[in-house]
Design a binder for these strands. Structure first.
Lengths: 170, 170
DNA sequence: TTGTTTAGTTGTCAATGGCAACTATCTTGG
DNA sequence: CCAAGATAGTTGCCATTGACAACTAAACAA
């Protein structure tokens, strides 16, 4: 069916991508976690604020989809963040079951500081690249994200939903 | 200390890298988790097997360092994996406190299947790139990992800080 | 109006992860 | 050799993450 000649090189690149991506993820994940903790946020809280700030506000269900978490987990996350004064919410007039969740000033401040710290790190990381190489790196990451989003879903309902929401958020 | 002219361009690229990396991490993380679960492993178990197989065996402390987990967590992970027949361990003759932990045949099998599944995914992802672009993507990822590893390690200071901050957080 | 669907919450369970306190085994300075 | 310290792992306790199921309340549809 498919060429017997194709594989070897592709196989090797696929393996290299796996190893590189794994390492990348682990490094950045831990780095981001350290940064978040230093600024008094957990990783999930930072993601939540990211989503709230870039979208201007979300329902709990929308948030759960964007975070790819269960509604129940999301509900508890928001409850914790409300207690810590990181988010605020109100009942939209047109649907009194729903919550409209937004970042509080304090949440905005903390996320802003966190983001700036990470950006400083990234700038240091990129500083010695020539700009075209920098942009190449970024656009390749974007491309991989794009492909992975479109392609490899062995779609649980959750993932399908998540994709839909994420797409319309951007 | 550094130039005031510190280019706007760099700022922008740093921000772009942040967004792209964040998206990349989230996508791959969830994809890997789905894959792992489908093959009867958790993410941590998959990483553990990866480390054990590529190193040929580890002490618990070494594993904890590689996984960046606390010894206690690692101990419990290994205990679970032992019960599930994914790893085996022995007491090295020269130190009867220590554990030498290795992957069991079953662990090897499952990890192998998981890895092959992910590689198939990656191959599909890369298939339509021309090989030089593929390799560029990979080497950029590697380079970023390399830089992040060499650079931003202030691990003890970072963790200490993080701990302190977390503690004083109400 | 009466189902039905939708938005969130709560109960329960398991896994993840950290810190502190503990046991058992080396290792070293006298 | 031996007491003191360092190391390797384990366990107790706690908080968070995460899923699933059962639930309440509000909105919607026939």
């Amino acid at each position: 069916m498919v060429s017997r000649i194709r594989p070897l090189l592709l196989q090797r690149d696929a393996a290299d991508l796996y190893d590189a991506a794994t390492a990348f993820i682990r490094i950045y994940q831990f780095r981001n976690r350290d940064h978040a903790l230093r600024h008094g946020l957990t990783v999930v809280q930072a993601y939540t604020l990211d989503i709230l700030l870039s979208s201007g506000g979300q329902s709990l269900t929308g948030l759960a989809l964007a975070l790819r978490l269960d509604k129940s987990t999301t509900s508890r996350v928001i409850s914790g963040m409300t207690q810590h004064g990181l988010v605020e919410w109100s009942r939209p007039a047109h649907d009194r079951r729903a919550k409209l969740i937004v970042a509080s000033p304090e949440g905005r401040r903390r996320y802003g500081r966190l983001r700036r710290a990470i950006l400083r790190d990234n700038a240091r990381l990129l500083a010695t690249y020539p700009p075209p190489a920098r942009q190449a790196a970024i656009s390749i990451l974007r491309e991989l994200v794009h492909r992975a989003t479109g392609a490899s879903r062995a779609p649980s309902a959750a993932s399908r939903e998540a994709r839909r929401t994420r797409t319309q958020r951007s």
